[in-house]
């Protein structure tokens, strides 16, 4: 039961992110919503590789017979975090440009393109 706890956290993270994206009206908060979903997915990936009582997957220092956590999900998560930083930085800088021209960050105002 306690082993499933990270998955519950994943669902909460993604659910909060989706809620933020759908109902929060501030562009910065929308950026935070994207980051929340991203953290949920990263947590999901890293949990997949977890084995109970296992050690870090470093072959040279491992005692023989000891279980190791899976290294691949960690590599995936690391890549995903790096990409996430690029995404977040881009979203925030574009939000900055929007603020410069529109003078507001309210999603109800930032909709000159419609119809």
């Amino acid at each position: 039961m306690i082993g499933n706890f990270p998955y519950v956290a994943v669902v909460i993270f993604i659910g909060l992110g989706i809620y933020t994206l759908m109902f929060k009206k501030n562009l910065i908060k929308i950026a935070i919503g994207v980051v929340l979903i991203e953290n949920g997915v990263n947590l999901f990936l890293i949990t997949l590789g977890y084995r109970k009582g296992a050690i870090a997957p470093i072959y040279t220092q491992a005692p023989s017979g000891q279980a190791m956590v899976l290294p691949t999900p960690q590599a995936l998560t690391l890549t995903s975090i790096v990409i996430g930083i690029a995404t977040t930085a881009l979203i925030l800088s574009v939000a900055m440009m929007i603020y410069k021209h529109y003078g507001t960050l309210d999603t109800d105002q930032v909709r000159r393109l419609r119809g």
Partner: peptide
């Protein structure tokens, strides 16, 4: 977007929806 507001707005919208889609793809990969 440096000179105009609309391109920045379009970029923001596209970035948000494409981040959602990419993260869902990553979830499926997981």
């Amino acid at each position: 977007g440096i000179d105009l507001g609309e391109p920045a707005e379009a970029g923001f919208k596209y970035m948000v929806v494409s981040s959602i889609s990419a993260l869902m793809v990553l979830f499926a990969v997981g």
